[in-house]
Amino acid sequence: MVDFQTMASSNSRLSSVKGPIIALFVGATSGIGLGVLREFARQAVNPHIYFVARNPTKAGPIADELRLINPHAKCEIIHRDVSLIKDSEKVAEEVMAQESSLDLLFMSQGFVSLDGRQDTSEGLDASISTRYYSRIRIAQLLLPLLNNSQSPRVVSVLAGGKEGPIDEHDLALDKPGNFSMSAASYHSCTMNTLMLERLASEYPRVSFIHAYPGFVDTPLFDGVSSGIQGKLLSYTLVPVARLFARSISDAGSWGLFAATSARYSVDDGMVPLTRGIEKAEKTKGGIFLVNEKGESTDNENVLGPFRQRGVDEKIWVHTKEVFANIM
């Protein structure tokens, strides 16, 4: 376990990194992503921050807050809805139009649907689209820029290490009766890990992290009251979960540590290892699965058979087809 003080100490050393750090945050207008965004602005000397926001009225105050935290920070808002693949592509295109390199891609967008499948205008379930398709599409398009960075990193905060069974014959869960909250969660998590491994094999210089934050007191707790399932959760599990949940501020420190420490890097990382901290182990697929304690997790009993049977290749073909059909 990496204790909080060690994480905080490592994060403070980000100020010693020379030159501007260019980072894109997706899903950072609330919750864990916002906590990491604030901490990044606080610790980096001259950060160049892009962050995605669907709601312009919400984004303005966040940008103002970041500039108060760090007057030297350059903040740019990208107004897009990343439940849509087309908008996710526009996010990448806007960054590519202005930058020749990218140091950090931090993605935490997504939600859990308690009211059944909710299709977007592109025919994809919105909860799976935000948690899986949009993340992979943004990462895929920005990898050439990341590859130009001295120490590039992609962090996807979802449920790394919690991979599980998926319907290999209905990866989009669009056939009648196949969609459920748990099925959508397992699909999003498992496909995330296997496809990040795929991207890592193509870009070995880039460090890929799929992280599980544990219980965090985010607005997701406030959003479970819709629908019958949501009302049951809001009156039973949510109050108990909040007793054990870490704050958004603490989650921000945890997330920045995952995003910058050499512990999770194929090279030396932005921030060198501190005393008592060793390099984390990667999966056999070449990425870091990181839990809420900052430790590597091993889920080979699930991931190994998927790779052996070629399910990862099947997911890749399916994902490319989804992207092509939307274009």
Rank of each mutant, 00 (worst) to 15 (best):
S101L: 13
E94M: 03
R80A: 13
R131E: 11
T130K: 11
D119I: 11
T57Y: 12
R54Y: 00
S100T: 15
L124T: 02
D103F: 00
D103G: 06
L68I: 13
S129M: 10
Q98T: 12
S108L: 04
Q118L: 13
L68D: 11
K90W: 02
E65A: 11
L84S: 13
D119A: 13
E76I: 13
K74N: 14
D115F: 08
I78C: 04
I138L: 02
H72L: 14
S127A: 15
T130D: 03
D81Q: 00
V95G: 02
R54S: 00
I78W: 07
S129C: 13
G110L: 02
K74W: 11
V112C: 09
L66E: 08
Q98L: 15
A59R: 08
Q109C: 05
K58M: 11
E94F: 10
P56L: 02
H72K: 15
S113E: 09
L66I: 04
K58H: 09
I136K: 07
P71V: 04
A92M: 07
L124D: 01
D125A: 08
V82P: 04
G60I: 14
I62L: 12
L105N: 09
I85R: 02
E99M: 10
P56N: 05
L124A: 09
L102M: 04
I136E: 04
E94S: 06
E99P: 00
S88A: 15
E89D: 13
E122L: 00
Y50R: 08
S113K: 04
S121N: 13
A97Q: 11
R131P: 02
H79M: 09
K58Q: 13
A63P: 10
V82L: 03
F51I: 05
S134I: 05
A63H: 09
H79V: 11
A92P: 05
F51Q: 00
D103E: 08
V82T: 12
Q98E: 15
I77G: 00
E89Y: 03
D103R: 05
R117T: 06
S101A: 14
I78S: 00
A92I: 03
L66Q: 07
Y133Q: 07
I78P: 02
R80C: 04
A59Q: 07
L124W: 01
R117W: 01
I136H: 14
A92S: 12
V91D: 05
L124F: 06
I136D: 10
H79G: 00
A73W: 03
F51K: 05
N70A: 08
S100K: 15
S88K: 11
D125W: 08
V91S: 05
S108K: 06
Y133L: 14
R135V: 07
Y133W: 15
N70V: 07
R67K: 15
E76C: 10
R117N: 07
H72N: 15
S83I: 05
